[in-house]
Design a protein around this nucleic acid. Structure first.
Ligand SMILES: [Zn+2]
Ligand SMILES: [Zn+2]
Ligand SMILES: [Zn+2]
Ligand SMILES: [Zn+2]
Lengths: 132, 132
DNA sequence: TAACGTTTGTTATAATATAACATATTTTAG
DNA sequence: CTAAAATATGTTATATTATAACAAACGTTA
């Protein structure tokens, strides 16, 4: 069972914004959104993000330098993340597919490297953008 | 069969540096390396990189903002890339595993999204770094 | 309450990437 | 061959993303 974790003030503020967002948020857009709450500097955002990522509550979409809330509560997804990304509208969806996750977690490189973690990003066109 | 492609002067210079490098290179490190060859501005590097990536000769390691030469000549890997990354020494290795590639290329998201491309990054400790 | 680790606030700066515009070069088509 | 179009280059400036460094406050524990 996953440990219930307590977060600090800034961490809660950042998590809240990211969870309420419809899509991935950039760090500076988070900053802009929380300036009324007394957070003034990028450091404060990046520090909160670091902790939240470590805790698995937030993931970074590496190809976009943006951040999304984890959809899979109580799972170890921060070590096994997969996303689908629409190249047109940029919508991002976290993929939770047990088979895929198991397949990749078992995958081992020939060169003797044992993997601790992976991140997979799929790109394409979402349903809506295909129609247009 | 893959088309033999001709590259422009700057593109060849950048490709050459990246191919000769032992590991991933950052854009500004490429820039530094080619200043004696008359390339002076980041734009010139990024433009060359864009073309080379499109051509599948170079891949971007998204989690590191760095660039590596493609190991798999004559294949369509730019649409199906996988890398192993050592978290200690940061060595990067392009994975060419037909099964893995097929498995992921066939993978389709439930939400009706058809994927065109994916990028997978595995993290762990390489052989050398495990011993230390 | 003292010591320690964590979080915060703040200023400054580093690192990564793109915009915009003027030229030059190469390719294509009439 | 030659005008037009497409591609590539050079250059300056700027935008975006991320970290360094340091001082102060807070929270926990011994
Ligand atoms: Zn998740
Ligand atoms: Zn879309
Ligand atoms: Zn490749
Ligand atoms: Zn290593």
């Amino acid at each position: 069972m996953a440990q219930t974790q307590t977060f600090s003030k800034n961490q809660r503020i950042v998590l809240d914004i990211v969870e309420k967002a419809k899509g991935p948020l950039k760090a500076y857009s988070i900053l802009f959104n929380v300036q009324k709450k007394g957070i003034n500097a990028p450091q404060q955002i990046y520090r909160a993000l670091d902790k939240l990522i470590e805790a698995g509550k937030i993931h970074k979409i590496e190809s976009k330098n943006a951040f999304v809330a984890c959809k899979n509560s109580n799972c170890e997804v921060s070590k096994a993340t997969a996303f689908s990304i629409c190249e047109s509208c940029e919508i991002v969806d976290e993929i939770s597919d047990t088979k895929l996750s198991k397949y990749l977690s078992k995958f081992n490189h020939k060169k003797g490297m044992k993997f601790k973690r992976f991140n997979l990003e799929f790109f394409g066109l979402c349903k809506k953008c295909k129609i247009k």
